[in-house]
Design a protein around this nucleic acid. Structure first.
Length: 612
RNA sequence: GUGCCGUUGGUCCAGUGGUAGGACAUUAGCUUCCCAAGCUAAUAGCCCGGGUUCGAUUCCCGGACGGCACACCA
């Protein structure tokens, strides 16, 4: 089948995604083919047979990806006044014990031989026995218990005895340094690289909330079944922002985005098979559709950003997580989704992570994952305490003396009334210890407190750069007809285009045109633009090559260019194929304006520019 | 991880128990005064391993990779 037939077949296909699964004619397959051929992305190490779920961004792709990342940085770091950091991809095991990822990544699965449903093996054992933490038992024991307890498939009732129990571990493990004494893991999300550095980061923020810390970097998940090009891969780039807030006081600058219209697909609508509805940010917060004003704020900020990078807003929505769907850390969660090939793909998760991560890292390390919040007015409080006479406790209790002292201290804090009698009794381990009250030295002190340590809450927008990249490609893929010939072009925003301009001599067998074109190419590169040069083949073919990779303009040097004064060139617009004549002296400014977002039709209004 | 299907130049495909052909693309030359034109030539391929066979790209087995379904998905 020729490529043209291929496209027609694609155009005639019904939109039912189940009919688009033959891999040859779907929207994703068409774009993936272009991506491979034109150097956007392709499978890694194909010479070695390829690796599932690993992709390499080619020359065009890495430029487009970098531009998306730059746009993200501009919006969510620079203009939002946030910090950025760059943490290593490998972190030691205890980090992921604290974050909860190690537990969550280590599922035991048993599959029903009859209905092929997979079940959490440890949960089955817990449901049918006294075991409360079956996960700790290990695979072999769980397998035996399934037989002994005669556990059956909850769905169809088939006995599961003898079925193999498999472990699903989505973390990439490694060793840090020689030997296996320090296990490490590739990070499954970039966020932990921010949370672990919180004690230092809060210093840079001078201890004041709110502040945001962002990171763009790679994360790794050893997916069971990588799928669909860039959509589910084992190594992927995330752009994450961790917004640290005081949940009691900090409010987002919601007025700045209050009128942004959000296409919301709420959890109740999903349950009732309802559709999506449009809310302004203001209305969504007022009506409680979005619980957290911070989440709403970021949904608003991000909506306009998605549009600016070329996501088709008719193929975009915000979907609320249903109750059972949320991650182990997430209190409320919305996903940004784009529609690709009739399916909705998560491109960003907006999660209210509360104080989950900081609390856990604090517990694991004992380090300061809190900020000190000063009261408006210092508070005077009465604090009951003890100052035990250790010279009495020591001889009496020996090695338990300090434990007795600690117990007295906590008793003083919780039950000051216990110290009203002549003696006071505390529990140490299983034993009780009785101490004379005056030995405990109980007293109520009056202290002045100027503030308290609070653990910030975290609002996290987490963007999947690869999926956004793919969405931009798919949503910008266009075909039209020029002089009876079908044309393919990528209508990516000029700001993002991997190659901004291509300079071409109209014909290549005239040295004067070629020479002039090469000069112009060099001048434009000196101006900081990504400029290609092409003198191979007919002029139309060269235009089409650039159209296909989304180059916004082609600059053509023709005879008129060099014969007339002032020297001029034509500038051709990718989306319309319209052309304008521009003096060479104005070219740089014109192109920089286009790069910055000026439309081609606005360019035509300039005095120096003449439509062709 | 299970099941079904698949893997042939850069891309998309055809084909064969005696190592392959097309289209498009690419490169060079000619041509070319604005949209994939034409002419000439060139470059370039049977996913990997094992088995059967005189001989395997082709048949069989296994693997890798891909697509889809089920399952999983922070």
């Amino acid at each position: 089948m020729s490529r043209e037939d291929d496209r027609q077949a694609s155009a005639e296909r019904p939109s039912d995604p189940t009919l688009l699964t033959d891999g040859g004619t779907s929207e994703l397959a068409t774009v993936a083919e272009l991506a491979k051929r034109r150097g956007f992305f392709f499978q890694t190490a194909e010479s070695y047979g390829g690796v599932g779920g690993l992709v390499t961004y080619g020359p065009q792709g890495s430029a487009l990806k970098r531009n998306i990342e730059d746009r993200w940085r501009d919006r969510f770091v620079t203009r939002a006044g946030n910090m950025e950091l760059s943490a290593p991809d490998v972190m030691p095991e205890p980090v992921f014990e604290a974050s909860g990822h190690l537990d969550g990544f280590d599922d035991m699965i048993v599959e029903c031989p009859e209905c092929e449903t997979a079940h959490r093996a440890d949960h089955l054992v817990e449901d049918s026995s006294e075991h409360e933490d079956a996960e700790a038992l290990g695979i072999e024991q769980i397998g035996e218990l399934i037989g002994e307890l005669e556990i059956a498939c909850p769905d169809c009732g088939t006995a599961l005895a003898g079925e193999s129990v498999d472990e699903f571990n989505l973390m990439f493990g490694t060793d840090i340094g020689p030997g296996s004494s320090q296990p490490g893991y590739l990070r499954p999300e970039t966020a932990q690289g921010i949370f672990t550095e919180f004690p230092r980061l809060k210093e840079y923020a001078r201890g004041k909330l709110p502040f945001g810390v962002a990171q763009i970097g790679d994360a790794y998940r050893n997916e069971i079944a990588p799928r669909r090009g860039l959509i589910r891969v084992r190594a992927f780039t995330q752009a994450e922002l961790e917004q640290f807030i005081d949940p009691e006081e900090d409010e987002p600058a919601i007025e700045a985005v209050a009128d942004v219209e959000l296409p919301l697909y709420t959890a109740p609508a999903q349950a009732d098979e309802g559709g999506q509805e449009t809310y302004t940010v203001r209305k969504a917060v007022e009506e409680g559709v979005i619980e957290s004003a911070w989440i709403a704020y970021y949904l608003g900020l991000a909506r306009d950003w998605y549009e600016a990078i070329g996501i088709d807003m008719d193929r975009f929505r915000y979907r609320q997580h249903k109750a059972g769907e949320r991650a182990h850390y997430a209190a409320d969660c919305w996903d940004a989704e784009t529609e690709l090939d009739g399916e909705w793909v998560e491109v960003t998760g907006f999660a209210y992570r509360s104080d989950y991560d900081l609390t856990n890292h604090a517990a694991a390390t004992g380090d300061g994952f809190t900020v000190f919040k000063q009261y408006d007015e210092p508070k005077t409080v009465e604090r009951p305490g003890v100052d035990p006479d250790m010279s009495t406790l020591g001889p009496e209790f020996g090695g338990d003396a300090s434990a007795v002292a600690d117990a007295l201290a906590s008793l003083a804090a919780s039950e000051p009334d216990a110290f009203t009698g002549d003696t006071v009794t505390v529990e140490i381990g299983g034993d009780s210890a009785t101490v004379a009250t005056d030995v405990a030295n109980f007293a109520v002190e009056t202290v002045t407190e100027t503030g308290e340590h609070i653990t910030p809450h975290v609002v996290e927008p987490s963007f999947g750069i690869g999926r956004l990249f793919y969405s931009v490609l798919v949503h910008s893929y266009e075909t039209d007809e020029v002089d009876g010939e079908e044309r393919t072009y990528l209508s990516v925003p000029a700001e993002l285009a991997p190659t901004f301009a291509c300079v071409v001599p109209l014909v290549s067998n005239e040295p004067a045109l070629v020479e002039q074109a090469e000069q112009i190419r060099d001048q434009l590169r000196d101006a900081g633009l990504e400029v290609a040069y092409d003198e191979s083949g007919a002029i139309g073919r060269r235009y089409r090559r650039q159209d296909e990779i989304g180059t916004p303009v082609c600059v053509t040097v023709d005879h008129e260019s060099i014969e007339e004064e002032p020297t001029s060139v034509t500038v051709r617009d990718r989306d319309t194929t319209a052309q304008a004549r521009v003096p060479v002296t104005e070219l740089r400014d014109c192109l920089l304006a286009l790069r910055a977002g000026t439309s081609f039709s606005d360019l035509l209004d300039r005095d120096a520019v003449t439509p062709v």
